[in-house]
């Protein structure tokens, strides 16, 4: 077998294993949460008999290990269970929410990843001079300010004062793409500002590291321009660390957007999760946790595989 195929298969198997482990952790975590769904549905005045009936109906009286495997079996068949609080199928409800979250993450990524890499290259080109310092300063400032604050500041200045874009990022199926983009413009800007610094700093550091190599000197002595040296000779050798940070940030765009979704009242996964944690709706929390874990593991696996593929020694063995 080609060694690279073997490595990739290994990563895939490892990813699956990790996902199973994550599912067990999520299940165990939700088990030890304080509170009781039946109690929260029926209220403080419920009789013990009514509580017991409801528990039996919801399947809460079965031993946890058996419940875990029932749940896992369902998940493998695409059945995420039904919500305890509104009796709706979780997969259906969440599908729409996940779509919205991915829509927002996609546009934020489309803008932030190329921008971050370009700024990183620019910072390397002018290392130690004012463009480098300006880029570093601005991106570090934007990552240091809490995202809700950036959100409100943008709402105040851009939406309220300049009357550009909308303050509330509500989207629905009836809207055209243009209307949707107009609605999510502000959250996309906030997310971009939040993830830019990480990726840009890593690009800069990884390329500066490569710039110490002898082959960069060779390229310079060929009379190539600085930017060509960086883009053609340094960047291809710095892909692995850059991809890793890019993927971590993409994962953050999907998993970590709770605050931004709340600020802009965006109907995404984050809000969905927060709502149901408050209601002690364990199946929804478990399903959300599992999806988040899957996104995280998948993106990191892609980063791993891209790193492997970007290594010519592995791609073209002797």
């Amino acid at each position: 077998m080609h060694p690279i195929l073997k490595l990739v298969l290994q990563r895939l198997a490892l990813g699956c294993l990790l996902l199973v482990a994550a599912s067990a952790l999520i299940f165990a975590g939700t088990m030890i949460l304080p509170g009781d769904v039946a109690q929260s549905i029926l209220g403080q005045s419920a009789t013990p008999q009514a509580l017991a009936n409801l528990r039996a109906e919801l399947g809460l009286d079965v031993p946890p290990v058996q419940r875990y495997f029932d749940w896992l079996g369902g998940v493998l068949h695409g059945d995420l269970g039904t919500s305890l609080t509104n009796r709706l199928d979780i997969a259906d409800t969440m599908g729409k929410r996940l779509g919205n979250t991915l829509f927002l993450a996609f546009w934020a990524a489309i803008i932030s990843v190329p921008l971050a890499i370009f700024l990183g290259l620019l910072a390397v080109r002018y290392e130690g001079r004012w463009p480098d310092k300006l880029i570093s300063g601005v991106t570090l400032a934007s990552i240091s300010i809490p995202e809700f604050l950036i959100g409100y500041v943008l709402i105040y200045f851009i939406a309220v004062k300049l009357r550009l874009f909308t303050t509330v990022a509500m989207i629905n199926d009836g809207m055209s793409l243009g209307e949707k983009l107009n609605a999510i413009a502000l959250p996309v800007i906030v997310l971009t500002l939040v993830v830019l610094a990480h990726m840009m700093r890593m690009t800069r550091a990884a390329i500066l590291n490569v710039m110490q190599s002898a082959y960069i000197e060779t390229a310079e002595l060929k009379g190539l321009s600085s930017f060509k040296v960086i883009a053609r000779h340094a960047f291809p050798n710095a892909i692995a660390p850059i991809v890793n940070v890019v993927m971590l940030n993409l994962a953050y765009l999907v998993v970590g957007v709770v605050v931004v979704e709340v600020v802009f009242v965006y109907p995404g996964m984050g809000q969905y999760l927060v709502d149901h944690v408050a209601k002690r709706d364990v199946p929804v929390v478990q399903a959300c946790g599992l999806v988040f874990a899957a996104v995280y593991i998948c993106l990191n696996m892609i980063a791993d595989i891209v790193s492997i593929l970007s290594n010519p020694r592995l791609r073209h063995p002797k």
């Binding site: 002898a214 082959y215 000197e217 060779t218 002595l221 009379g223 190539l224 291809p236 050798n237 970007s310």
Partner: peptide, 25 residues
């Protein structure tokens, strides 16, 4: 003007060719 000289009129062979070649190309 200097870049026009380097790699055209004057070229360079380094001590360690193993390090002086870009491994990705």
């Amino acid at each position: 003007g200097l870049r026009a000289v380097r790699g055209a009129e004057v070229t360079y062979v380094a001590q360690s060719a193993a390090a002086a070649f870009n491994p990705a190309k």
